[in-house]
């Protein structure tokens, strides 16, 4: 695993954490009561942290996009995971846009964008894990085959 991949994975984890911290669950379920973890219930702090992490994530995704598009073959899983990422990024950017003071988006659109952001994240987690396991299994099989 190269260093960019490590940064990418840590960023995704931190984004998921600060994203879920936008819901009032960490204070309800005692995490914020743990010494040193009071910040998990600070909505403004987690909001800013989510923006900063999103900047890192978007830069990495942008960096990798040309390589990804260069790929010769696409499995159904590749496409599904890719669509989830597109959904997360688009809904996330719309959320940032609607949080600007001069912008206006209809309440119905905002509701669907918020729900979409959450749904895409919840979908991506098991899909990305399955995708990762499949690729690892394939790589192992390939190594075994080459060894023979």
């Amino acid at each position: 695993m190269n260093s960019l991949t490590l940064v990418f994975r840590l960023t995704v984890f931190a984004l998921a954490f600060t994203g879920f911290a936008q819901m009032p669950i960490f204070s309800r379920y005692y995490l914020a009561d743990v010494p040193g973890f009071a910040w998990t219930a600070d909505y403004y702090f987690n909001h800013v942290a989510h923006y900063i992490l999103a900047i890192v994530l978007l830069a990495i995704l942008g960096w990798r996009l040309p390589r990804i598009l260069r790929r010769q073959s696409w499995s159904a899983m590749d496409v599904t995971v890719g669509l989830c990422w597109i959904g997360i990024v688009l809904t996330g950017i719309v959320r940032v846009m609607k949080n600007q003071p001069e912008s206006y988006f209809s309440p119905t659109l905002v509701m669907w964008v918020d729900w979409g952001h959450l749904i895409f994240v919840v979908l991506l987690a098991p899909l990305a894990l399955a995708h990762f396991m499949t690729r690892r299994a394939r790589a192992s099989a390939r190594r075994l085959h080459n060894a023979k």
Partner: peptide, 10 residues
């Protein structure tokens, strides 16, 4: 960020 990332990646 994504635009800068894409340009750098290309």
């Amino acid at each position: 960020a994504p635009l800068i990332g894409v340009v750098a990646g290309v």
